[in-house]
Amino acid sequence: MIGQVQTDARERPLEFRDRRDNLAILGFWFFLGSDVVLFSCLFAVYAVFQGRVAAGPTPRQLISLGPVLVETVALLTSSFTCGLAIAAMRRGRTGPLAAWLGVTMLLGAGFVGMEIHEFATDVRLFGTWHQSGFLSAFFTLVGTHGGHVSFGVLWGAALLVLLWRQGLTPRVARRLYTFSLYWHFLDIVWVFIFTVVYLAGKIT
């Protein structure tokens, strides 16, 4: 079917059948475009501030790759399970959809938990972000992503309840679809954070 124009609404996936849902999905893409720019500003701040360490730690001192790799795998896996959830939705199978979405939420919550633990450890070892411009930029960039993921976990949980209460209607399917776009997008942002902040921070 790939590559063909489909005009018959009934042949489209559930979330694309209603006119309003179509509009909402496009609008959500534009929101993601806006969020790309938001993160790019934070990346710019980080890039400019990474050498401005004052009396605080340098990136190399601050970062330990071990825990971050676990966080990364958790988030990559959650993106995968989120993809499986949408694939199940496309086949109209509500049970696997809810199950994969639940797993996604658990992995997301685990990611947030690990990140909070990482931050707490950083603060214990090196002090708060008041220390330096670098620490401020680090916590803000990584924390903004973490905040997005936390919001996503709440959102996904609310959608699970919505799915349970209302069943797989076109409207619910669209909400799940836009949620999946959000979740994969956060995965992309994380890949860049992992690369620019964590990996590059370890290069001498």
Partner: peptide, 10 residues
């Protein structure tokens, strides 16, 4: 061009 993916498996 608009298109939808109907994949048969994961």
């Amino acid at each position: 061009l608009p298109r939808f993916e109907h994949s048969s498996g994961p």
